[in-house]
Design a binder for these strands. Structure first.
Length: 282
DNA sequence: CTCCAGGCTTACG
DNA sequence: CGTAAGCATGGA
C-alpha cells in the first residue's frame, strides 16, 4: 500500500465519480472504491490527485483517462451554446476506463432500474460472490464465480429478472464462448453487433460497455434521461418516424452532430440531467 | 393504488 | 415488418 500524488490538470474527481458512470465508489473522508480487485482511496487538491492504493500511478492515470486531451475534445463537441456552457460548468469531467466485465454486468443490472437499486444490487453481488479485500471492501465477482451460482442464491442480490441475464453472460465468458476482451480490437459497429448477442444486452447497454469499458468515444448511449434532454434541446434537428426507433435516431444524430467524441458529449448531458434529479435518487 | 426507473425480449398482428 | 405487454424491485 503506497501513497502518491498525480498531476491531473483539467480533471475533476468529484464529477467523474458522481456523474453516474460508475456504481461502486463512495465519498467518505476520501473517495473510496475498488479498481481491478484493489482498494483505491483518492482525493483532489487543486490539480493534484492524492492516491492511496497498491495500484501504480500508470493504472490510475489509465483508469481516469488523464491522457485524454480535453481541450481537443471540447473543441470538437462544442457545436452550440448548450454544449459550450456544459463543458464550462462541468469542466474536468472525464470518462472512466472501467473493467469490461464489471461494466457489462453492472449495466445488465441497469435495465429498467433505478441508480439506487443498481448500486445496491451490485454491492450485494460483490459481498456475496466477490473476494473480501479488506474490511467492507470486496472485489467484483469474476465471470467464473457468477457462472456457478444458483439463481436462488442470486435472489439475495435483489436483481429481479436481470439475475439470469447476468449469470448467463458470466457463463458465456467463463466458458470462453464469448470473447469479451476481444471487443477492444473491433470497431464500434462490430463491437456492438457482438455485445448485443448477449441476452439482456440491447443497443443501449452495448453502447455503455463500448464507451465506458472500451473507450469507443463515438458511442452515444441513449437512455430515458438522454432521450428527454435531447428532445428538449434538439428536437428540431432530427426526425423520428417510428417511435420504436427513436433512441437509435437520437444516437445517430448525436454521432453526426457532435462528431467522433460524442460519448463525451453524452456524459455532460447526462450529468446535467443528474444534477436536476440528485438529492433523493443517489 | 399507479407510475416510473441508465431496457430488453417475446408474443402477437 | 410493426407495436405492446411483461419482466422484479423499490420509491414517489
Amino acid at each position: 500500500m503506497s501513497m502518491y500524488r498525480i498531476h491531473a490538470p483539467d480533471f475533476n474527481l468529484d464529477l467523474a465519480l458522481s456523474c453516474g458512470q460508475v456504481f461502486r465508489w463512495e465519498k467518505k473522508e476520501r473517495w473510496t472504491g475498488v479498481v481491478n480487485g484493489a482498494v483505491v482511496r483518492a482525493e483532489q487538491e487543486g490539480s493534484e490527485l492524492i492516491i492511496e492504493s497498491v495500484l501504480n500511478k500508470k493504472s490510475i492515470q489509465d483508469y481516469f483517462r488523464l491522457d485524454d486531451d480535453l481541450e481537443k475534445i471540447y473543441s470538437e463537441i462544442r457545436k452550440d451554446e448548450l454544449m459550450t456552457s456544459l463543458t464550462l460548468k462541468y469542466r474536468g469531467l472525464r470518462l472512466i476506463r472501467q473493467d469490461p466485465w464489471e461494466c457489462l454486468a453492472s449495466y445488465i443490472c441497469s435495465s429498467n432500474n433505478t441508480i439506487r437499486n443498481i448500486k445496491n444490487s451490485i454491492r450485494l453481488m460483490c459481498e456475496c460472490f466477490g473476494n473480501r479485500i479488506e474490511n467492507g471492501y470486496y472485489s467484483f465477482p469474476t465471470p467464473d464465480a457468477l457462472a456457478h451460482v444458483e439463481l436462488c442464491d442470486m435472489a439475495s442480490c435483489r436483481m429481479g429478472f436481470r439475475a439470469p441475464n447476468v449469470r448467463s453472460a458470466a457463463a458465456m465468458i467463463a466458458e470462453g464462448e464469448f470473447d469479451l476482451k476481444g471487443i477492444k480490437d473491433l470497431s464500434y459497429e462490430e463491437g456492438r453487433a457482438e455485445l448485443t448477442k448477449i441476452k439482456g444486452v440491447g443497443n443501449k447497454i452495448a453502447d455503455c460497455v463500448l464507451l465506458f469499458a472500451f473507450g469507443k468515444l463515438e458511442s452515444f448511449p441513449v437512455d430515458t434521461h438522454i432521450e428527454q434532454i435531447m428532445e428538449r434541446f434538439y428536437s428540431e434537428k432530427f426526425n423520428v418516424l417510428k417511435k420504436s426507433k427513436k433512441r437509435e435516431v437520437i444516437a445517430d444524430f448525436a454521432r453526426m452532430y457532435f462528431g467522433k467524441f460524442c460519448g463525451y458529449a453524452q456524459e455532460y448531458l447526462y450529468l446535467e440531467d443528474m444534477e436536476k434529479i440528485s438529492g433523493q435518487d443517489i
